[in-house]
Design a protein around this nucleic acid. Structure first.
Lengths: 152, 152
DNA sequence: CCAAAAGTTTAGCCTTGGCTAAAAATACTA
DNA sequence: TAGTATTTTTAGCCAAGGCTAAACTTTTGG
């Protein structure tokens, strides 16, 4: 740790190569499901707000083109997360709805935790967008616990 | 928010479509730089521990094949983050070292925050692997502040 | 009721970041 | 020093998730 002026030390000093590899693997896998969950959660939001989820609105909120949305919806359909017929709006399957609920719950816990440790509202919402996908159940549980304690 | 039994509410109720789009864009960009930073940080770790960073060791720790490492190193070289000659081990440029420092510092702050809110050591290290890339400077500052306060 | 606008779909392209297999270079060891 | 073992490199594959452009529906308004 000779060249670490900040005093932290090498991350890998804490573990064996394969343990570390598994962390990175988990992070890679999280990245994969992240996009899926973003779409599913957003579809749920749109249905709640407008009664339906249209490709064009999904695209607008996600900042991607309609073509991209379309391709993704095809994937979600194959994964049995949504029901969709050509030229009609998109609906969640039971499984999709369950995923949306879970995703939303995680999102809220992360926002609450960030607020509790002093992050401002806007930043909390923005940052939670990515963080919600990296937290293990244990960490989420700890967050929930901490927030509850703070509140009381 | 009619159909939200958990009481959280739709995420998007808090913002306009384009604001939300920018959050997702930021999350996508973070995902892109994430891999780069993981490689750079790991190279720094290996140099600190072994005096050099070899492709085979990077691969082992990241859980990817040597071929993948090789391709990535070529990219890092193009980005001027590392110096590497054929069949020799890899070194960081000044810019690379700077990135590694920053990444490492973020990593440590996140771990400290997780520990402070009650996450156990092992989980903290594992989860920080992904979270470190999603935190804005504001959030990291809040984390640092919070940890400092707790400690005193 | 029909034309223009809006939305959806398809086709085809690109980059990333994985992979395997095989070739080339380096390192070790008998 | 020769031969084997390890490591690196190259070539070529794949899926994901973006994009544009163009064709095709559906919706809307005159």
């Amino acid at each position: 740790m000779s060249s670490d002026p900040k005093g932290g030390g090498a991350v890998s000093a804490h573990m064996t190569p394969d343990k570390q590899a598994s962390h990175f693997k988990r992070a890679r896998e999280a990245r994969e499901s992240e996009i899926i969950e973003d779409y599913v959660e957003l579809i749920a939001d749109l249905i709640d707000e407008h009664g339906e989820a249209r490709a064009v609105d999904i695209g607008k909120r996600l900042g991607v083109t309609g073509a991209t949305v379309n391709k993704m919806i095809a994937r979600l359909k194959m994964m049995d997360l949504v029901n969709a017929e050509p030229y009609r709006s998109i609906f969640l399957t039971d499984e999709g709805r369950k995923m949306a609920e879970a995703s939303r719950a995680r999102h809220h816990i992360v926002v609450a935790l960030l607020r509790a440790v002093g992050v401002d509202e806007a930043t909390a919402w923005a940052d939670a967008e990515g963080m919600e996908h990296c937290c293990s159940p244990e960490t989420l549980a700890a967050f929930a616990e901490f927030v509850k304690k703070q509140g009381s």
